[in-house]
C-alpha cells in the first residue's frame, strides 16, 4: 500500500471518517447520548491543490481537521497521508508525520507564546526536526521565512503583542512553514481580520502555494473566501459532507438543496446582480447534533423532502464529472 507513491495519488485520503463524542451526565459520567460531530465523511485532497471545507458552526468542519491532525482520535474510519494510514498510528509512529502536516489557527494571538520573540517562536519550529544546526543557519532560515511571509526581518526581535492582527497571522503562517510541511490545515485563518488585511493574507496564501507547492485544507465559514482560494470545495451540514465540487461550479450549479439555500443567503456586493437574485429562505434552525433527525440530516428544513429522505441517509455520489452530492433527488432523476 505504502509503496504506490505516484503523483496522481491523492496526498490525503479520508475514508468514512466518524467522530462521535459521548455526552455524559452526573458524577459517574453516565453516558446519556452521543454527539455525531463527524459522520461518515470521505474526501481526498490532491497534491498541490487547495481543498475548502465550508459549513455553519457546529457542522463538524473543524473536528474533521482535528481528526486529520490527530488532535482527536477518530471513532471510526481511515485517514491516509501519502498512502499511509495515520489515524491508527501510535504517537511515536506519528511523530515524523506531524512535521508534514501543519496547522494555522483562527486567532493568531492565543496561538503564539506571548513571552517568546518572533525569532524564538520560529527557531523553535525550525529545530523541531532535531537536526544539528549552527546559529547562523537558524538565523538565515528565520530571515528566509520572514521574507516568504512578507515580514520585515527587523520584526524578529518583536513580541506577539507588538504585532498587528495581520502580522501575527503572517507569523503563524511562517511558523507552519518552518518544518517544510506538505499539507497545512488552515482553520478559519482570515475570519478574525479586517477586510483590507484579509485580502492581503489570502493573496499571501496563494503566492506561497505557487512558490512552494504546498497543499492546503482550508476550513472557513465564509463561502466567498473559501471559493476564492480553493480548487475544490466540500460543503458540510450536521457532520455530513453534502456536496463536493470544483469551486468554479459551486456558484453557478449548486446541486444540494442546502448548498443552494446557503448560497442564496449570502448577499453579494454586485448591486444589480444582487437585486436580481432569487432567495431560498430556510425555515428553522440547525437541529442539535445530539438529536439528529433520521434519514437525511437536512430533511426537516428541505423544501424537496420526501418520505425516503426521512428514513434513508443518502450517500455521496458522483452525479456530474467531479461533482459529488448526497441527495436522493439526483439519484431518482438519473434512473
Amino acid at each position: 500500500m505504502a509503496d504506490q507513491k505516484n503523483m496522481d495519488a491523492p496526498l490525503l485520503k479520508v475514508e468514512h471518517l466518524k467522530m462521535y463524542f459521548p455526552v455524559t451526565k452526573g458524577f459517574f459520567g453516565k453516558k446519556v447520548g452521543v454527539v455525531k460531530a463527524v459522520d461518515d465523511v470521505s474526501f481526498d485532497i490532491r497534491r498541490g491543490e487547495t481543498f475548502g471545507l465550508v459549513g455553519e458552526s457546529g457542522c463538524g468542519k473543524t473536528t474533521t481537521g482535528k481528526c486529520i491532525l490527530r488532535i482527536n482520535d477518530p471513532t471510526d474510519g481511515n485517514v491516509y497521508f501519502e498512502g499511509q494510514e495515520i489515524s491508527r498510528m501510535t504517537k511515536h509512529e506519528f511523530q515524523p508525520m506531524r512535521r508534514k502536516i501543519q496547522l494555522i489557527f483562527q486567532d493568531p494571538f492565543s496561538s503564539l507564546d506571548p513571552r517568546s520573540s518572533v525569532y524564538s517562536i520560529l527557531s523553535e519550529a525550525i529545530m523541531c526536526d532535531g537536526k544539528p544546526r549552527t546559529k547562523e543557519e537558524i538565523r538565515n532560515k528565520v530571515n528566509e521565512l520572514l521574507f516568504t511571509v512578507e515580514l520585515n526581518p527587523i520584526m524578529s526581535y518583536r513580541f506577539p503583542h507588538e504585532l498587528s492582527g495581520g502580522q501575527r497571522q503572517r507569523l503563524g503562517i511562517a511558523r507552519a512553514l518552518a518544518c517544510n510541511p506538505e499539507l497545512i490545515v488552515c482553520d478559519e485563518p482570515v475570519s478574525a481580520l479586517d477586510v483590507s488585511i484579509q485580502a492581503q493574507i489570502i493573496n499571501l496564501f496563494r503566492s506561497i502555494q505557487k512558490k512552494l507547492g504546498i497543499t492546503y485544507l482550508f476550513i472557513a465559514h465564509d463561502l466567498a473566501v473559501v471559493r476564492h482560494i480553493s480548487d475544490r470545495i466540500g460543503v458540510m451540514y450536521l457532520g455530513h459532507l453534502v456536496e463536493v465540487t470544483k469551486s468554479t461550479d459551486l456558484y453557478h450549479t449548486p446541486l444540494h438543496p442546502y448548498t443552494q439555500a446557503l448560497l442564496s443567503a449570502i448577499p453579494i456586493t454586485d448591486y444589480y446582480e444582487e437585486k436580481k437574485r432569487k432567495r431560498i429562505p430556510l425555515q428553522g434552525e440547525v437541529p442539535s447534533p445530539m438529536h439528529m433527525p433520521p434519514g437525511c440530516p437536512f430533511n426537516p428544513r428541505c423544501p424537496y423532502a420526501t418520505e425516503r429522505c426521512r428514513t434513508e441517509v443518502p450517500k455521496l455520489r458522483e452525479v456530474m464529472p467531479d461533482h459529488f452530492v448526497s441527495c436522493h433527488k439526483y439519484e431518482e432523476e438519473k434512473k
Partner: peptide, 17 residues
Amino acid sequence: NSVPKLESNKDEDLVPI
C-alpha cells in the same frame, strides 16, 4: 476590490489596500 466575490471569476487576484 479587496472583498472576495462569490459571483466573480475566481482567478482574478484580490487587490488589497
